[in-house]
C-alpha cells in the first residue's frame, strides 16, 4: 500500500480528516524551508504538499506567485525540491509527500527521469496544475511505473458530465478546489463545499481533500466534518513570507487540533 493510501485509511479508521499543508520549496531559501518542512509532521500535518516554484503560476494568487519568485531568486529548482524531499525522508519515513507545481519544469527535466528521480527521493504523489486528464497520458505511465499517485483536481465547474473523466485516471485522493478562482483569494461556503463533495463521492471511492481559501481553525474544522482532508496553503505561505516560521508552525498546530476534534 502506498504511503498516501495507508495514511488516509488509518485516519479514516480513526474517524478524522487529514490535515494537508502546502508550502513552497526553497522559500525564502532552501535551508530555512527545510527546517519548516521537517517541523510540519510534529506540528500536526498528516500529508505534505511541497510547491515546486515556477515563473508563471497561472492558477495561483499573488501570495504564492511571490513565494515562487522568492524561491527562484534563492536558487530554487527541480533539483533542490528533490533534495528537500530526500533530506526530509531522513527524518520522516511515514508522512506522505506530494509535489505540486506546473508542468514545464518537469517537462524540461524529462518526464520519465523526473518520475524516477522523484520516487527515489521519496515522493508519493504529484499534483500538476496545468496537466488535465486530456494531457496527462504523457506522464501517467511513468508515475505509475514508479508507484507515484497522480492527484487530479476537481472544481466547482466539474459537473456530473465532467467528473467521470477526472476520476477515471485518479489515484491517491481527489483534490477539490473549493472556489472557481486562484489560490488565497475567495472562500467557499461550507454548504456549497458539502454539496460538491457529495457529488464527487457519487463518482469515486477515493478520499476527497478540500482546499483553496481555507485560512482559519474554524473553517478547517467545519470542512473536516465531512471531507477526508483539508488543505491549507496561502496562509502558511503568508506567514513564512514574514519570516515567521515559528508562528506558521503554531498555526498548523492550532488547525490540526481543530480538525482532530471536528467530528467529536
Amino acid at each position: 500500500m502506498s504511503r498516501l493510501a495507508k495514511r488516509l485509511s488509518e485516519l479514516k479508521a480513526q474517524n478524522r480528516a487529514a490535515l494537508v499543508t502546502y508550502m513552497m520549496a526553497c522559500d525564502p531559501n532552501q535551508a530555512t524551508a527545510q527546517t519548516v518542512l521537517n517541523g510540519l509532521p510534529g506540528a500536526g500535518a498528516d500529508i505534505i504538499e511541497l510547491g515546486m516554484p515556477f515563473t508563471d503560476p497561472m492558477a495561483d494568487g499573488p501570495a504564492i506567485q511571490a513565494s515562487a519568485l522568492r524561491a527562484l531568486a534563492s536558487g530554487g529548482s527541480v533539483k533542490s525540491c528533490l533534495e528537500m524531499v530526500k533530506a526530509f525522508r531522513k527524518t520522516d519515513q511515514n508522512t506522505p509527500m506530494v509535489l505540486m507545481g506546473y508542468f514545464n519544469p518537469i517537462y524540461s527535466w524529462g518526464v520519465e527521469k523526473f518520475c524516477k528521480d522523484a520516487a527515489e527521493a521519496g515522493v508519493d504523489g504529484l499534483i500538476i496544475v496545468d496537466l488535465p486528464p486530456e494531457e496527462v497520458d504523457e506522464l501517467l505511465p511513468h508515475a505509475k511505473a514508479n508507484d507515484i499517485d497522480f492527484i487530479f483536481l476537481a472544481t466547482p465547474t466539474s459537473d456530473d458530465a465532467r467528473l467521470p473523466t477526472i476520476v477515471e485516471k485518479a489515484s491517491g485522493f481527489v483534490y477539490y478546489v473549493s472556489i472557481a478562482g486562484i489560490t488565497g483569494t475567495k472562500t467557499a461556503t461550507t454548504t456549497d463545499v458539502g454539496e460538491a463533495v457529495a457529488r464527487i463521492r457519487r463518482h469515486t471511492e477515493l478520499p476527497i481533500c478540500v482546499g483553496f481559501g481555507i485560512r482559519s481553525r474554524e473553517q478547517a474544522a467545519e470542512l473536516a466534518r465531512f471531507a477526508d482532508g483539508v488543505v491549507i496553503g496561502s496562509v502558511i505561505v503568508d506567514m513564512l513570507a514574514k519570516g515567521d516560521s515559528i508562528v506558521a508552525l503554531a498555526l498548523v498546530r492550532d488547525i490540526a487540533s481543530g480538525i482532530k476534534d471536528a467530528r467529536k
Binding site: 497561472m58 492558477a59 508542468f103 496544475v129 496545468d130 496537466l131 488535465p132 486528464p133 486530456e134 494531457e135 487530479f152 483536481l153 476537481a154 472544481t155 466547482p156 465547474t157 466539474s158 459537473d159 465532467r162 477526472i166 478546489v177 472557481a180 478562482g181
Partner: peptide
Amino acid sequence: GGRYVAETLMPL
C-alpha cells in the same frame, strides 16, 4: 498545441 490548463477552465 494541446490544452494545458487548470481543471477549472477545462469545461469552459
